[in-house]
Design a binder for these strands. Structure first.
Length: 418
RNA sequence: CGGGAGAUGGCAGAGUGGUUGAAUGCACUGGUCUUGAAAACCAGCGAGGGUCACACCUCCGGGAGUUCGAAUCUCCCUCUCCCGGCCA
């Protein structure tokens, strides 16, 4: 969430930065005015409350001294009514302000390039050479020659479209990837955690999926619970409402979870194959850091994910997202795009974001900085989306006969299968 | 899912209407003492808002209510623990 005090004090700068994300200045102006009005209203409310508190304390004294309390009582009853009236007004304004503020995206970092769409993103670096083929490489669904690896039909039968079933060696490979990735991350100092795949609404508010993106989530009927769209939600919320010790930061975590997304608004996109599913496995990285650490931790996370791809022998590139393509909660994001020879293009396989104090403010994640409690920074990034990684391996390691190899590093994870 | 008990500061644990944001113990931080450490002693030590700084306001699981005044009384909700049922 936006720091409203900051908005009041440095309106020009913040407003200018948020233009990058396409936020209308009028909304910010309104927000600022409501905030100032609220502060004034609150001040007068508190004054009346102070009177009420002070004079209430006179009762026991009056009674002891056998003085008449009826006049005092009348006075305070009157004052009480005034308080109730203003209180109601204050609550109303607070609610209004809060609702509006929750819908304002994070302020982009200064390093974020201007731009409105993914076409304006900046390619930072390409890693590894794209593989060359002396035949026309196929897309992943055409590589399942005997139909014994991916079962799309039965995935639909079990749930609905955009669900699939993995079988045989591909199922094994998926499991191998989870293990390999987590081991890889652990060696880089990320501690492994296993968390619920269901989260309550407080958690989803804290990381910013709610209230704005409810339509993208699978909600559990009659409960305030949702299937998680990413492990970022449970991992970050681990520390919600907590005050951490300075010397335990940065906290770096990795976890495998299934992720569930409605993909509302993606109708017609990637309908074929496993690129865009309602459920997919992902190994996630999350870090909680002090503000002055987050830049370095961010770089660490980017190299962790990139090195992981490199270790799998997958050509990829690092893309710095422009303001218009930046997610709601992110101050800065680097996407990793893997080369898919069958599609003949790069596709996003990982996305690493620094949300700075945006989530921390919503989630009240603080640390004790000497005497003061300060907000932490939070960062998240896919180590890799496992489903897309499977596709990448299939397509990049394919042979002319439609079979494909398994990267060296995964051999020991597949128990000699194949 | 049925029956019972409970929810107070980092933890433990007092407090049942009145100057209580909260005793006490532990933990923690600073100091004295010590060659150093421990012990002992002294001091500090919840959170959010507000202010240049004070003042002041809010918070004793969450919400609503009674009252001049609520951690304490009433109602609703949630969660935890124990007993039973069911079940990975």
């Amino acid at each position: 969430m936006l720091d409203l005090k900051e908005l009041q004090n440095s309106f020009e700068q913040i407003s200018k930065k948020l233009q990058k994300k396409g936020v209308d200045e009028k909304i910010l102006q309104e927000l600022k005015e409501i905030f100032i009005a609220l502060k004034q209203k609150r001040a007068s409310l508190e004054e009346l409350k102070a009177i009420q508190n002070q004079k209430s304390k006179l009762f026991p004294i009056y009674i002891k001294e056998k003085k008449d309390i009826s006049k005092l009582k009348d006075e305070l009853e009157e004052n009480k009514k005034k308080i109730a009236l203003i209180q109601e007004n204050v609550n109303e304004i607070e609610q209004k302000l809060h609702n509006k503020a929750l819908n304002i995206p994070n302020i982009p970092d200064d390093s974020v390039p201007d731009g409105v769409s993914e076409d304006d993103n900046v390619i930072l670096k390409e890693v590894l050479k794209k593989p060359e083929f002396d035949f026309i490489p196929k897309e992943h669904w055409d590589l399942d020659i005997n139909q014994n690896l991916i079962d799309f039909q039965r995935g639909v039968k079990l749930a609905k479209s955009r669900f699939s079933v993995l079988k045989n060696s591909l199922a094994t490979l998926e499991r191998a990837l989870y293990n390999y990735m987590i081991d890889f991350n652990t060696k880089r100092g990320f501690s492994e955690v296993s968390v619920p795949f269901i989260a309550n609404k407080e958690s989803l508010f804290a990381t910013g999926q709610l209230p704005k993106f409810e339509d993208d989530l699978f909600k559990i009927e009659d409960e305030d619970l949702y299937l998680i769209p990413t492990a970022e939600v449970p991992l970050t919320n681990l520390f919600r409402d907590e005050i951490l010790k300075e010397d335990e930061l940065p906290i770096k975590l990795t976890s495998y979870t299934a992720c569930f997304r409605k993909e509302a608004g993606s109708a017609g996109r990637d309908t074929r194959g496993m690129i865009r599913q309602h459920q997919f496995g992902k190994v996630e990285l999350v870090a909680i850091s002090k503000p002055d650490q987050s830049e370095a931790v961010f770089d660490e996370m980017v190299s962790c994910a990139s090195d992981l791809l490199t270790s799998l022998g997958l050509a990829h590139r690092l893309v710095l997202l422009c303001g218009g393509d930046l997610g709601f909660g992110a101050a800065k994001t680097i996407d990793l795009e893997v080369w898919l020879p069958g599609q003949n293009r790069y596709r996003e396989i990982s996305s690493i974001s620094n949300t700075k104090d945006f989530q921390a403010r919503r989630a009240k994640i603080r640390y004790k900085d000497g005497k003061k409690n300060r907000l932490t920074h939070t960062l998240n990034g896919s180590s890799l989306a496992v489903g897309r990684c499977l596709i990448a391996i299939m397509e990049n390691y394919q042979k002319e006969d439609g079979t494909f190899e398994i990267p060296q590093v995964l051999q020991k994870y597949i128990n000699g299968t194949r």
